[in-house]
């Protein structure tokens, strides 16, 4: 009797462990913003706000896409820096995660979150303080100039991908472009 009870308990436990219900359905009330956006003028819908900037002279507009808000080429001594401006919701994944993602793309080791401050500089632009980082892989000769520009509920990301020489030559213009971003 005791044998059977124990074996039954064990079987029930194993059967319960093997559930395969991976489709869920539910209804929720439509999500309503809990408060007006603090960083944008409250009398204007965010969709109506247009981002504006001052393009450096050496940059040429390149073919855009639905993902990029703007796209530029920076020709320099046979190389071309590809500059993109995109917008992501929230913090876009955060500073540490993005910097480490870019480092990984360049074949560099990620850095621990507490040392991220050594990799970045904070610059004051027209949209407020933003993060700038210059990531180089001397072995491959590739580099990224990246800026993370928070603005209310969205974050703008500006990135230039090029060789190390072009990145060094374009750093001043890159920063001036990032600092010039503002809403019309």
């Amino acid at each position: 009797m005791v044998h059977k009870a124990l074996l039954t308990c064990l079987s029930v436990f194993i059967i319960l462990s093997c559930g395969d219900d991976h489709i869920r359905t539910y209804t929720l009330p439509k999500q309503v913003q809990s408060q007006p956006e603090m960083d944008l003028p409250t009398n204007v819908e965010p969709a109506n706000l247009q981002l504006s900037w001052t393009k450096p002279d050496g940059w040429q507009p390149s073919e855009g896409s639905s993902m990029r808000l703007a796209s530029f080429d920076f020709p320099n001594k046979g190389d071309t820096g590809d500059i993109s401006l995109i917008q992501l919701g929230g913090d876009g994944g955060g500073i540490a995660a993005n910097i480490n993602r870019w480092r990984t793309q360049l074949g560099l080791q990620p850095v621990i979150a507490s040392l991220i401050e050594n990799e970045i500089s904070r610059i004051q632009g027209k949209l407020g303080e933003y993060i700038f980082t210059h990531i180089r892989n001397e072995e491959s000769g590739q580099a990224f100039l990246c800026a993370i520009i928070p603005s209310g509920k969205v974050t703008f990301f500006v990135k230039m991908s090029s060789n190390t020489e072009t990145a060094a030559a374009g750093e001043v213009d890159f920063k001036s472009f990032c600092s010039s971003l503002h809403f019309k």
């Binding site: 991976h22 869920r24 359905t25 209804t27 929720l28 439509k30």
Partner: peptide, 23 residues
């Protein structure tokens, strides 16, 4: 619907290459 949204959610174990999803 104007007042609510209806969700049909497929969990990661179902999102395998070649898997057909329907409900």
């Amino acid at each position: 619907h104007q007042k609510f949204d209806s969700y049909t959610v497929f969990d990661q174990p179902m999102l395998k290459n070649g898997k057909e999803l329907h409900h």
